[in-house]
Simulated scan of single mutants.
Amino acid sequence: MEFKALENAVYINNLSAVMPNDPVSNADMEKVLGQVGGQRSRAKSIILRSNQIKSRHYGIDPETGEFNYTNAQLAAEAVEKLLPSASELAQIDTLVASTSLPDQSLPNHGVMVHGELKNPPCEVISTSGICLCGVTALKYGYMAIKAGESKKGVVVASELASSVMHARNFTGESDYKIKQLEAKPELAFEKDFLRWMLSDGAGAALLSNEPSATGLSLKIDWIDVLSFANELEACMYAGAEKENGQLKGSAFYSSQEREQLSLSAIKQDVKLLNENIVKVTVEKALSQIAAKRDIKPEDYDFFLPHYSSGYFRERLFQGLQNIDFEIPFEKWFTNLPNKGNTGSASIFIMLDELFHSGNLKQGQKLLCYIPESGRFSSAFMQLSVV
């Protein structure tokens, strides 16, 4: 069956990013996030050496130790930075908001952001997931304009990962282990691993059916998203425990068990991640997309890869080589070392920095790569500078 593409072009007219509070160095991370059971993490230094992140941001007041942002407030601030006047906000007809970790289960994150913004009634959509939900939100905004259902929309992705990484979330599990094992309190590695990997931030994009009258815009040529959940079990998860390869959700545990097992914590099956993240989200996914879109590596002036750790940089490059899609490092753009891994917001935060860098020129093409280890999904996106 052949699909006829709709004619409406879609442009990113502007981007913004918000990083809460001052940068937090590696040395100060435990001062902000706290120590579990009063003990320094034994995994922290190893993980930080591997991920090559030098600083990141948290929505936590470093003086008081209290949160000074909600996730919805962080997202709203990114939108307000994008559209600073009430009249500009009033012009949007679609708001798409995305996060992995909303402030509450219900209502959805999107309407909470709308409530913070207080702009006039408009269509509000929220997408969920992990790293990929930012680009699925962008695809909804893109498709709405392409279908002629929207003329001007805002897409925003935000993460407040510190809300589930703070030491107070693990007190119950730590106390439980002391009583049960009479051992030093220590998190399972798959939980402690992510405490030093994730950080907070938000990014927003303004979309319309016309390029900006002045300055640059990014034309969205296409966005392709692929899930490989039919092939692999869950790798990154929260609100559940993994038993024999299957997830058992927190609703099936007692309140005491939920606390003792720190079920709100984000967990990562590191072995499964290492074995599959490049092979599946790069080699399998891009092979299919390259054939579908008839693209070649030399088509691109910039490659924006979202990877969670510097550890994966060389492995990602090797994966591209394995499928004859080698893009040299001089074309890569990332801000992971100083912005950290902000999950679904990462691609927006990268695009914002590049967009305002002065390094983009008419006619250049960008290839963006956004993987997700949740149950192994991948997205690639092509943008043209106009």
Score class of each variant (00 low, 15 high):
Ile92Lys: 07
Pro84Cys: 05
Gly153His: 04
Gly172Ala: 11
Ala76Ser: 12
Glu123Val: 14
Ala78Cys: 11
Pro120Cys: 08
Ala137Met: 05
Phe170Tyr: 15
Ser150Met: 11
Met112Phe: 04
Ser87Thr: 14
Leu89Ala: 13
Met165Arg: 04
Glu123Leu: 14
Gly115Ser: 07
Ala97Phe: 02
Lys81Trp: 10
Leu101Asn: 05
Ala183Met: 09
Lys146Glu: 14
Asp175Tyr: 06
Leu160Lys: 13
Ala78Glu: 02
Ser87Val: 14
Ile92Ser: 05
Val124Leu: 11
Pro107Ser: 11
His166Trp: 06
His109Leu: 08
Asp175Gly: 00
Lys152Met: 09
Gln104Pro: 00
Ala183His: 05
Glu149Ser: 11
Leu83Thr: 06
Asn169Asp: 04
Lys146Pro: 06
Gln104Phe: 12
Ile92His: 06
Leu101Lys: 03
His109Arg: 02
Ser162Asn: 01
Asp93Asn: 13
Glu80Pro: 02
Glu77Cys: 11
Pro102Tyr: 02
Cys131Gly: 13
Thr136Arg: 08
Glu88Ala: 11
Gln91Ala: 10
Ser85Glu: 14
Ser85Trp: 11
Ser163Thr: 12
Thr171Glu: 14
Asp93Trp: 12
Ser126Ile: 03
Ile178Phe: 10
Tyr176Ile: 00
Leu89Gln: 15
Ile178His: 01
Val79Lys: 06
Ala75Pro: 04
Lys179Tyr: 00
Leu181Trp: 06
Lys118Met: 15
Leu82Phe: 07
Leu89Pro: 14
Thr94Lys: 12
Arg168Glu: 12
Asp93Lys: 09
Ala75Leu: 12
Leu83Cys: 10
Val135Met: 13
Glu77His: 15
Asp93Ile: 14
Leu138Gln: 04
Val164Leu: 10
Ala147Gly: 11
Lys118Phe: 03
Lys179Asn: 00
Glu173Val: 04
